[in-house]
Amino acid sequence: MGMRIRVAGLSMTYGSLRAVDDVSFTVEEGEFFGLLGPNGAGKTTTLEMIEGLRRPDAGTVDIGGFDPASRDPRLQHLIGVQLQASAFFERLTAREQLDTFGALYGVAPGRTAALLEEVGLTEKADERVEKLSGGQMQRLSIACALVHDPEVVFLDEPTAALDPQARRNLWDLLRTINAAGRTVVLTTHYMEEAEVLCDRVAIMDAGRILEIDTPEALVRSLDAPTRIGLAPGVLAREQARGIAGVLEVDDGPGGLLIATRDPAVVLAELARLDALEGLSVTKGSLEDVFLERTGREYRA
């Protein structure tokens, strides 16, 4: 289960727009890999070229020895694709949708019940798709991509337009898909999503890859200070400045904001001073990495 993906020099131009510019990376077997970046970064175009839905102007893609642009039926049975905009057959129930998708792949109808349970839609099996919530529709869309039990799954913005709770619920499903041994490639513009789910991420902007590494390594390379927040009036600004390891002290939206690269030392002193009311601790994030690499604020 799981296949390796090699991408080399992919480029795509629309008129004068260089949507994807010499993109290269490798996804290992069983890896959860994320293409992370703002809208318009080139993530979806890159993914569509890897899936074989678009033919690149330049570059190559290899999925387990197959070229997806060849539309080889053997490869089609090994990959599952969940598009950014899902489309379902009209007036069919969730069960009928999966039966229909399964039939296209020659899958026995018995697969549907197990798959509905896997994506948490057993109770909605006989509901028409138009009556499902946004999160349930995304789960059904992912189920359709899994109906033939593929080794590689491509997910394009699977949690876009979902509320925060539905998004986090869907994360559990995505982890399960990868835990079964499948290679998963995800595009997202949610920094937190990439940090939570991905083994490695490629940060994209303006059609190019800026960095590729694990989320943890990218954040560590930034060496961003930890920020400790305190409730108003808990500690005087001058007193906070006098604590060993404190780099700077500012007024935050909810009280005092302390920057440090030695959070353990500072927190120990705050505890000794009985000054932990309203405590919050924020470390560097992928959003900080994006800002450092591009010199501007991240835009979703």
Rank of each mutant, 00 (worst) to 15 (best):
V7P: 04
L10K: 01
T13A: 14
S16Y: 09
V20W: 09
S24R: 13
V27D: 10
L35E: 02
T46N: 06
I50D: 04
I50C: 03
G52N: 04
G52W: 05
R54F: 01
R54D: 05
R55D: 07
P56F: 15
D57C: 07
T60H: 09
D67K: 12
S70W: 05
S70I: 04
Q82N: 02
R91T: 14
L92Q: 12
E96D: 15
D99M: 11
L104E: 05
L104D: 06
G106N: 11
A114C: 03
L115V: 13
L115G: 00
E117S: 12
E118P: 00
L121G: 01
E123D: 14
A125S: 10
D126L: 06
E127I: 05
R128V: 12
L132P: 03
S133F: 05
A143H: 03
C144L: 10
V152M: 09
L155W: 00
D156S: 07
P158N: 06
A160W: 01
R168I: 09
N169C: 03
L174P: 00
R175Q: 09
I177S: 03
V185P: 02
A194M: 08
E195D: 15
I209A: 02
I212L: 10
D213I: 14
D213T: 07
P215Q: 13
T226F: 02
R227P: 01
I228V: 12
L230I: 05
L235S: 08
A236T: 08
Q239V: 13
A240I: 14
A244M: 09
V249A: 14
G254H: 06
G254K: 13
L256G: 01
A259Q: 12
T260I: 12
R261I: 13
V266K: 03
R272H: 10
D274F: 05
L276H: 02
K283W: 11
G284K: 04
G284C: 07
S285I: 15
D288V: 14
R293H: 04
Y298L: 15
Y298F: 15
R299K: 07
A300Q: 10
